[in-house]
Design a protein around this nucleic acid. Structure first.
Lengths: 345, 345
DNA sequence: CTGAAAGCGCTAACAC
DNA sequence: GTGTTAGCGCTTTCAG
């Protein structure tokens, strides 16, 4: 058996004929536009049901909206980002908008490719999560299509933002560890060289928050940072370096849970016990931080919540493209688990 | 500062004028179509660069292709699925196709919504990963747009498939445990009630593979299955049931890594040690199975590889819609780690 | 309140 | 090898 020949799509013309009205009328009913009588709406709706009509987005896109919003996530392997997507999808579930996601792969070139592809496909709006692209690129994108940027700090007149207070989050961790009695608290950061990004990227802000919090606790002499990447391997390599230092840190604050996973690995290979010999804290409170055998102390960012808020902001922006931009900032909380305890001795 | 007024898009007409050729010529060059001289191609390319032209997908979609493929994943929280998406994205990276993903949320209604949205948006092809929809729905979709189904067993004349040999995978686990000396090996499955799906869904096949392998080892009297869901909570509840049985199983084969996470939790709460008191095995070999503190024995499905093959199949199918459908089946391998060992005593 | 008609940007016959 | 032209399905003036 061959695949069945494509049945020709039902169009607005078919619906109009069936309902004995004009195509204009159908179009108006579809968009809940002004100027349709109740009985006309009823007849058109009936015809739509009878024929199983569904609007063809490409055709709509040529004149008006596509009812599609694009989401770019940096890395779907990091379990924190799916939470955000989930929040976005939930918020838009009951609307006519369909959410479509593409991975940005943590690179400027890849991100540019994705944002252009989305613009070319007529997205009505875009949500860019923790993009690494330059601010000017982001503003150019936002100039073409309503855009919400998630995770980057710093306000722009071109796009709305939703972010988490990474400065406060880092302080939460440092304070928690210091309260337990730790002094030699080290940090593993995601290396940020581009000076223009250093003020905006969450990873850089966390490192800064760590420094400030250490100083605030009078621990400036103990500040100790290793720069790798926000990956499991980055955590592994970073921890290896830290463990050879002498005196050895009694606690490691990893900039992301995924980094903490690598740290745990290195610590275990070094024959050390967590938390008896060394305390570990992560960031993001991802699902695997909560897993029994891991039970990682981590900073919770409420990813879902970030997602729903970003979606709402985008809908508002699509509705009014010239209103002033908004900046929503959430406060993180600390979830303490079994990887942190008072220092040995 | 207001967002800058939208600069009007550069169209094919602008390019044609700039290059002093017809719009047809530009269109042909864009599609590498037959009948263009080298010098014309050069001039058109030059004009495209000069003007920064990019084709508008919505307009293309009205006549031909949109150069977009849609991927539906059941659940992006399960870290196995991102691997597949990664494989797909990689395979299509150098092509003109853009990959766009939407979550199917493990429900027939949600899946229908997503597949329709993708069809409405003129996707050139779709890859549906582990869909729960009825076969007839899948075939209807495949009749409208080239489709590859990943994970479901059973051949269809309407769509190509890529799957993993779940029967063999389950046997790998049972044999491994039996070789270690276990006899009371229990299984936690994802409950499948729909008889039409029971023959196709990977979860059902795994349960079946477990039963067959147990019989093949002469352990038919020890067959013990708990039906919950492929979630962490499902694993937790399932394990709680199993641990109260007497005699207690000495090994639990969880149908998915995420399930094994819940099992580990329940086992730990019951005060039992893994693997000394009880062995645990999972399925999917997700990133967290490999994490040091977890180190879960699991079946590897090579998700990336599944993704790249599905993408290739889809490209082939887009190129020739009537060629016979293909069924690719991969063989899983077992990765043994620290959660399995000989039974106590 | 309703409908006729003009495109949106692109592709595909079909002529030249 | 190249250009002219007629739409694809929808939205949007603009008359009636």
């Amino acid at each position: 058996m061959e695949p069945p020949a494509q049945p020709k799509r039902v169009t607005i013309v078919d619906v109009a004929r069936h309902a004995q009205v004009s195509t204009t009328a159908v179009s108006k009913v579809l968009r809940n536009a002004y100027g349709t009588s109740p009985q006309m709406r009823a007849r058109v709706r009936q015809a739509i049901d009878d024929l199983g009509y569904r609007p063809f987005a490409a055709a709509r896109g040529m004149r008006g909206q596509t009812y599609t919003v694009g989401v770019m996530l940096p890395d779907i392997r990091n379990p924190f980002f799916p939470e955000i997507l989930d929040g976005i999808t939930d918020a838009l579930w009951e609307t006519d908008y369909q959410v479509l996601m593409a991975p940005g792969r943590n690179g400027e070139a890849a991100e540019a490719k994705v944002t252009e592809a989305m613009i070319d496909r007529g997205m009505d709006g875009m949500i860019l999560v923790a993009p690494v692209s330059s601010r000017s690129h982001l503003e150019r994108v936002a100039g073409m299509v309503p855009t919400v940027v998630v995770g980057r700090h710093g306000r722009s007149a071109a796009y709305d933002t939703v972010s988490d207070d990474d400065l406060a989050g880092a302080a939460l961790v440092v304070d928690h560890l210091a309260d337990l009695g730790h002094r030699r608290i080290a940090h593993i950061e995601h290396d940020e060289t581009d000076p223009r990004r250093i003020e905006e990227m969450p990873n850089a802000i966390r490192a800064d928050g760590y420094r400030r919090a250490m100083r605030a606790r009078g621990l400036e002499d103990e500040i100790s940072i290793v720069s790798t990447t926000y990956t499991q391997r980055g955590g592994y390599l970073g921890a290896q370096q830290l463990l050879t230092r002498s005196p050895r840190p009694t606690a490691i604050f990893a900039g992301a849970d995924i980094v903490a996973m690598g740290v745990l690995q290195a610590v275990s290979e070094a024959g050390l016990e967590v938390p008896d010999d060394i305390s570990i804290a992560g960031y993001d409170n991802t699902t695997f931080a909560a897993l029994g055998p891991i039970s990682l102390t981590s900073v919770d960012q409420a990813g879902r919540h970030i997602g729903t808020n970003a979606a709402q902001l985008l809908i508002d922006r699509i509705g009014d493209r010239v209103r002033p931009t908004a900046q929503i900032k959430f406060s993180p909380t600390l979830v303490t688990r079994r990887t942190t305890a008072p220092p040995p001795g």
